[in-house]
Design a protein around this nucleic acid. Structure first.
Lengths: 214, 214
DNA sequence: CCTCCTACCTTTACACTGTTAATAAAGCTA
DNA sequence: TAGCTTTATTAACAGTGTAAAGGTAGGAGG
């Protein structure tokens, strides 16, 4: 009864080919021109055959985005493990990894965070997309220490860094002719600056208005 | 021959109706479901009639985006004029105006900066979209003063602020459940922080690597 | 006043799109 | 071998952007 596994392997293979084809078309001609028929053409199947593997085009693209988050998380994790144990240095390298991913996989980044794609169905858990946040938060936690309301402080600083990095990436991807070198310089300086305000002694974070209400 | 003007007025009116209809549909059901036929239905014309006024659907949406940039620029300008003449206070209010616009006109903001829409044709000048940058740069220039390489410093700080604000807005629009109050707090603190590093005495900006090469 | 011409608009049509229903073929199970 | 399940196909539907052809009304010139 090994045939069952062979068939499963075969199906998995087709599924993978579909994803690969979609990604290739997206990279080559933009996500707008990705169509079920073109994918079908590419894998030499009829268009409805794809629906055996994905419920809809939207689901297919979401799966691609999910794989993107997997890869992104891996890169961030790797950046952390490859560096010394100083949390600030770790954070800088992790954000650099995020940055590098966004440009190495521009098209994946677009469906992961593109306005039109992601904002629609927030019903489902989307756990994979939350892994990066967890990774960063953990390291930020090392800097914050065991203070009161640490969770909220961590969240706040994570969002601050993420906003900055994501914004800088978006602006670069849109094509606003900022030299990449300058962007990278802005990136490291800003992240470094945010972290410094975080670990500055005497910076009583608990004085923030929204935390005040105990 | 005043009829010529009446006709022109009439045409301008139809053109305006088309834009209004497109915006209404976009606001109501998302930009993906905006179609020439629905617009035509809404203004009670046949679909090809729209092509008398806009060369393509893309051009129509781009015109909407252009109007968005006009409105945005107006708001930023107003924020500056309504405030005292302290450049830092001005900048904070101007970015607040940018922020408010993004949420008051979420859908406009999406076509103005949506990944898929904007990144395609950068051939044309897109002058209207560059007005905000000019407005901010002017005020940043007041803080920088008449130092060497002022232009590059201004550009750098403008991009730093813009990235941050745009990133925070994007993340909020995507729907990542950050309480808006916290976002606004992050916003003002970060912008204020960036400006402070800018006007900090002894902060020799000309020491930056990319400026060094005289 | 009549003709012509131009601008505007509609109908029709084409080549696409995502997706579904009906159908055929192939392979495993009994 | 008979039947059932799985997998793929063809045909079709509703919708998309857009181009070409046709008509119709209103102003211009005789």
């Amino acid at each position: 009864m090994g045939s069952k596994e062979r068939i499963n392997r075969h199906k998995e293979n087709i599924r993978c080919n579909i994803l690969r084809a979609a990604l290739a078309i997206g990279k080559g001609s933009g996500w707008n021109s990705v169509s079920m028929r073109k994918i079908a053409d590419s894998i030499e199947y009829s268009p409805p055959a794809i629906y055996e593997y994905f419920n809809s085009k939207e689901a297919l693209l979401q799966e691609l985005a999910r794989l993107g988050f997997l890869e992104l998380s891996q890169r961030i994790n790797q950046a952390r493990n490859n560096s010394e144990s100083d949390p600030k240095a770790q954070l800088l390298l992790m954000w650099a990894a995020y940055w590098d991913f966004a440009f190495a996989e521009q098209h994946l980044y677009q469906i992961m965070f593109g306005v039109e794609t992601t904002c629609c169905d927030i019903n489902e858990p989307r756990t994979d997309s939350q892994v990066p946040a967890a990774l960063f938060s953990e390291v930020i936690g090392l800097l914050v220490g065991q203070v009161e309301k640490a969770g909220e402080i961590i969240q706040k600083y994570y969002y601050a860094c993420w906003s900055f990095v994501h914004g800088l990436i978006s602006i670069n991807l849109i094509g606003s002719h900022v030299p990449q070198k300058i962007s990278e310089q802005i990136l490291t300086e800003a992240i470094s600056g945010i972290i410094d305000t975080l670990i500055a002694p005497g910076n009583d974070l608990s004085k923030e208005p929204y935390i005040e209400e105990v």
